[in-house]
Amino acid sequence: MNKAVLEFSSRTENVAFARVAVAAFVSQLDFTLSDIEEIKVAVSEAVSNAIIHGYGNNPDHTVRLELRVAEEYMEIEVIDQGKGIKDISQALEPAYSTDPERMGLGFAFMQSFMEKFSVQSTPGKGTRIKMSRRAGAPRQAAVPEQ
């Protein structure tokens, strides 16, 4: 297994850093360019959620990314210690959004672009999103575990 851990400030400009870093790390596996683009979208959504919803756009907190790859399999965890999600089932509904300007598609994209996807969250303590996918294999969208 190969692993990497990244911690960065909860600033929106770090969303691009996160997805590029993940893309670089998982490119050691046999992913196509199209796969990598999908993984970047999923990471972008998860990190944006941590910053905007977890930390309420406060730039003084930390988002943690844990990356693991082994035998054509990659796993990404996006962890914040923010306000957490009260009702995960509701948050996972397509088009659910707390903001009319946002599409509520973040979780839908994460599920579409990953094989396995789970959300652990404790109100007041934070959220941990775990998503994984194999390289070089046909893929079915994830059914979320909560």
Binding site: S44, E45, S48, E101, M103
Partner: peptide, 13 residues
């Protein structure tokens, strides 16, 4: 080169 749901939200809005 890249768009996620935040960008789509601007278009939808």
């Amino acid at each position: 080169e890249f768009v996620d749901s935040a960008g789509l939200g601007v278009i939808l809005g």
